[in-house]
Simulated assay, not measured.
Amino acid sequence: MSDQSIHRTSGRKVGVLVMSYGTPESIEQVEAYYTHIRRGNPPSPEQLKDLTDRYEAIVGGVFPLRENTDKQVKALETKLNETYPHASFVCYQGLKHASPFIEDGVERMAADGITEAVGVVLAPHYSIMSVGGYIKRAQEKASELGLKMSFVRSYHLHPKLIEALAIRVEEALSRFEGADKDKVLVLFTAHSLPEKILEMKDPYPEQLLETSRAVAERAGIARWQFGWQSAGQTGVPWLGPDLLDVLRTVKQENRAEHVLVCPVGFVSDHLEVLYDLDIEAQHTARELGIHLERTRSLNTDPLYMETLSDVVYAQAFAEER
Rank of each mutant, 00 (worst) to 15 (best):
Q4P: 00
S10G: 04
G11P: 05
R12D: 11
R12G: 03
L17K: 00
M19C: 05
Y21R: 02
G22W: 05
P24N: 06
S26L: 06
S26M: 11
S26T: 11
E28A: 15
E28D: 15
Q29V: 00
V30A: 04
E31R: 07
I37R: 06
N41C: 08
P42T: 08
P42C: 11
E46S: 12
L48P: 12
Y55G: 07
Y55P: 03
I58H: 09
V59P: 08
E67A: 12
L76A: 05
K79V: 08
N81M: 08
T83P: 03
Y84C: 10
S88E: 15
C91H: 13
Y92V: 02
Q93S: 15
G94T: 10
H97A: 10
A98Q: 02
S99C: 01
D104H: 10
V106K: 00
R108H: 10
R108Q: 14
E116A: 07
L122R: 04
H125F: 05
G132L: 00
G133C: 06
K136C: 00
K136Y: 00
G146L: 12
G146Y: 10
M149V: 05
Y155F: 15
H156A: 11
V169L: 07
E171P: 00
E171M: 14
A172N: 11
E177H: 14
D182K: 14
K183A: 12
A190C: 11
S192D: 08
M200I: 05
Y204G: 06
E206R: 13
L209W: 05
S212A: 15
R213P: 00
A216Y: 02
E217H: 03
A219C: 03
R223K: 15
W224G: 04
G227H: 09
Q229L: 11
G232I: 07
G235Q: 13
L239P: 03
L243H: 01
L243Q: 03
D245A: 15
R248P: 05
R248Q: 15
K251Q: 12
K251I: 01
Q252L: 12
H258Y: 14
L260P: 05
V261N: 07
V264D: 03
G265V: 04
G265M: 06
L271E: 05
L274K: 01
D276K: 01
L277D: 07
H283P: 00
I290W: 14
L292W: 12
T295Q: 09
T295Y: 05
T295D: 09
R296D: 15
N299L: 10
L303Y: 09
M305V: 09
M305N: 02
V311D: 03
Y313Q: 05
A316D: 06
